[in-house]
């Protein structure tokens, strides 16, 4: 059974590229365009890993992250934060909230695929 990756991102083109990359890597891809949708989708079909943009309409990425971490059912869910903001402050905030990784846009496609694969590998 293939692992599920939830892409939370409001930029259509970035969603496009991430979906393509994740599918190509053999994961099932779910997409949410805003924070609310992301939470709803998690409740319906929990993903194994969330690629989470921080600048989102409605609920921003930090809130989504907090929400996921506050639910013990989702304790094993991996979260990779994606942001166009490269400031240390943002990175620290993200890590404190329980993100597993923090990737700055524009990212390297190989790097992001490798990270996701690494986190979702059965060995871990």
């Amino acid at each position: 059974m293939s692992r599920k990756v939830l892409v939370v991102e409001d930029e259509a083109n970035i969603v496009d590229s991430l979906s393509f990359l994740m599918k190509q890597a053999g994961f099932e891809v779910l997409v949410a365009r805003d924070g609310d949708t992301a939470i709803r989708m998690m409740q319906r079909r929990p993903a194994d890993l969330v690629l989470l943009d921080l600048m989102l309409p409605r609920r921003d990425g930090y809130e989504v992250c907090r929400e996921i971490r506050s639910n013990p059912e989702w304790a094993s869910v991996r979260i990779i934060m994606l942001t166009a903001r490269g400031r240390d402050l943002d990175r620290r905030k993200g890590m404190q909230l329980g993100a597993d990784a923090y990737i700055t846009k524009p990212f390297s496609t190989r790097d992001i695929v490798a990270r996701v694969q690494d986190m979702l590998s059965p060995e871990r």
Partner: peptide
């Protein structure tokens, strides 16, 4: 500005690499 510039750059870089 940095955020706004990075967003299109992200798409450009991603698809170019793909």
């Amino acid at each position: 500005v940095s955020h706004e510039l990075r967003t299109p750059l992200t798409s450009i870089r991603s698809f170019s690499e793909i």
